[in-house]
Simulated scan of single mutants.
Amino acid sequence: MTYPQDPYGQQQPYGQQPPYGQPYQQPGYGQPGYGYGPAMPPQDQGLAIAALVVSIASLVVCTGLLSVIGVIMGHIAHSKAKRGEAGGQGMALAAIIIGYIGVAIIVGLVLVFVIVGIATDWDFD
Rank of each mutant, 00 (worst) to 15 (best):
T2L: 13
Y3I: 05
Y3Q: 11
Y3D: 12
P4E: 01
Q5W: 12
G9Q: 11
Q11S: 04
Y14I: 11
Y14F: 14
Q17F: 10
P19V: 04
P19E: 12
Y20F: 09
Y20P: 13
G21M: 01
Q22P: 10
Y24I: 02
Y24R: 13
Y24V: 02
G28F: 05
Q31N: 08
P32K: 09
P32V: 07
G33R: 06
Y36W: 15
G37M: 00
P41T: 00
Q45P: 06
G46Q: 09
L47M: 05
L47R: 08
I49K: 15
I49P: 15
A50V: 07
A50E: 14
V53K: 14
I56E: 08
I56M: 12
A57Y: 04
V60H: 06
C62T: 06
L65W: 13
L65M: 09
V68T: 10
V68S: 11
G70P: 04
G70Y: 01
G70A: 00
I72H: 09
M73Q: 08
H75F: 00
A77W: 02
H78V: 00
H78L: 04
A81Y: 05
K82I: 04
R83I: 05
G84Q: 03
E85L: 08
E85F: 11
G87D: 02
Q89E: 13
A92H: 02
A95V: 01
I96R: 02
I96F: 00
I96N: 06
G102A: 01
A104Q: 10
G108K: 01
L109Q: 13
F113D: 14
V114H: 07
I115S: 15
I118D: 13
A119V: 06
T120G: 11
D121V: 12
W122E: 09
D123S: 15
F124P: 13
